[in-house]
Simulated assay, not measured.
Amino acid sequence: MRKTMKSWIAVGCAAAAFSAAGCGTTSQNTGQVQPQDPTQNCQGPDGRYTIGMSQANLAEPYRVRMDEDIRKAAEKVPQFEEVKFLDAAKDNSQQVSDVESLMTQQVDLLMISPNEAAPLTEVVKKAYNEGIPVVLLDRKVEGDAYTTFVGSDNTEIGRQAGQFFAQQLLPDGGKIVQIKGLSGSTPAAEREAGFKQGIEGSNIEIIDTVDGEWERSVGQQQMDALLKAHPQIDAVYSQNDPMAEGAYLAAEAAGRVQDMEFVGIDGLPIESGGIKAVEQGRLAATFVYPTGGQEAVEAAKKLLVDCEQVPKQQTLPTQLVTQQNAAEVYQRLNQN
């Protein structure tokens, strides 16, 4: 089904021959972003389409849920014959290869949740410049060579988390540690920046920051080292729930779990997710971070079936979850 950009570039060159720098030169050589009509692959309701989904990893429950949400939503669109899922397993080179493979298979639209921003930027730009609509989920790349980004405002989530610490969890101040996600991923930087804004002016001190790579086991290992290095830790700000749970286990094993509070992000409405951890008292709070899977499929349908444009940025809502509302939020999210 997919059409390439060659015909569009040829028309542009014929109409503006004096602009020789843009004609006969690939975007890979110039580094420029080619203009794109993101609906050019649209064949309407009679079309049949294949979507490629490149996932950063499936070690995180959040990403497993994202793929499930995409699969379920795509099954409701009869024109979507297949979604090809690939798992990069936290390997940037593998994900670049995965995206190139999907391009070779001439998928009609790409969904990508980048492992890290910089290493995926060029291959995403290459796909976009070849006329393939690109839907980014959760994590961004550098620049704007993509069709639409679907995800929550990670800076705002971090800010809200900081405000929760400053206003409710530690209003008199305290010493906390931060467990970041993978350092090269955009949510890690944004959630840290927002958090620092949220605690600004308080007496909260971040005494140490470590990289937990978004994984529970790594978070547990890092927290074990933090506990040995710091005799006083009043609370843990973890950039996702699995790392927060790992930190909780490390503190429990060290006999210090009663001395501190744990806050995460994701709020997956599953038995092993953060909302249940809040309800059961292991986490003081989490923040709902929608996977964007359903919204990504809706964007794909607009582009490929309805021949409609989509916004460049699609910001999804978040919500603070505490013991007061955990049961209600869990029930509501599982009704959707």
Rank of each mutant, 00 (worst) to 15 (best):
R282M: 11
V263F: 10
S185H: 12
S238G: 13
R282I: 05
G174W: 05
V278N: 06
I176D: 01
A229F: 14
D208R: 02
Q221E: 12
L226T: 07
G274I: 05
E261D: 15
D266W: 13
E213H: 13
S272D: 09
G198D: 04
M260D: 02
S238Q: 09
I179P: 00
K175R: 15
G184D: 03
I207D: 14
I207V: 15
R256M: 05
I265E: 04
G264W: 14
A254I: 12
I199F: 07
P171I: 02
Q280I: 01
A277G: 05
R216D: 00
T186R: 02
I204L: 08
G198T: 05
I275E: 10
P269T: 01
D234G: 10
N203C: 04
V210K: 07
P242N: 15
E252D: 12
Y248L: 04
A277Q: 08
A244V: 08
K175M: 12
Q258I: 09
E205P: 03
D208E: 09
E295W: 07
N203R: 09
G212H: 04
Q197A: 12
G246C: 02
M260F: 02
V177Y: 00
A247Q: 06
A188V: 03
E192N: 10
I204W: 03
V210R: 07
S183I: 12
L283F: 07
T209R: 03
R256K: 12
G264E: 14
P290N: 12
K180L: 12
Y289I: 06
M243G: 06
Q197S: 10
Q197Y: 04
Y237G: 02
D224T: 15
K180M: 13
L283Q: 10
A285F: 11
G274S: 07
R216H: 06
K175S: 14
Q221L: 09
L170F: 09
I207E: 14
F262A: 00
G292V: 05
S183Y: 13
A253E: 10
L170T: 09
E192S: 11
E245S: 14
F195C: 00
G273E: 11
A189V: 12
I206V: 15
T286S: 05
V177K: 01
E295P: 06
I176P: 02
T209L: 01
H230A: 07
V263S: 09
L249W: 00
F195Q: 00
G281M: 05
Q294Y: 13
P231V: 06
D241S: 02
A250F: 01
E190R: 07
Q294M: 10
A235M: 10
Y289R: 15
G173L: 07
A247I: 07
D266F: 13
D266P: 13
G273A: 13
G184I: 03
Q220W: 03
Q197M: 11
V236L: 09
S185K: 11
V278M: 08
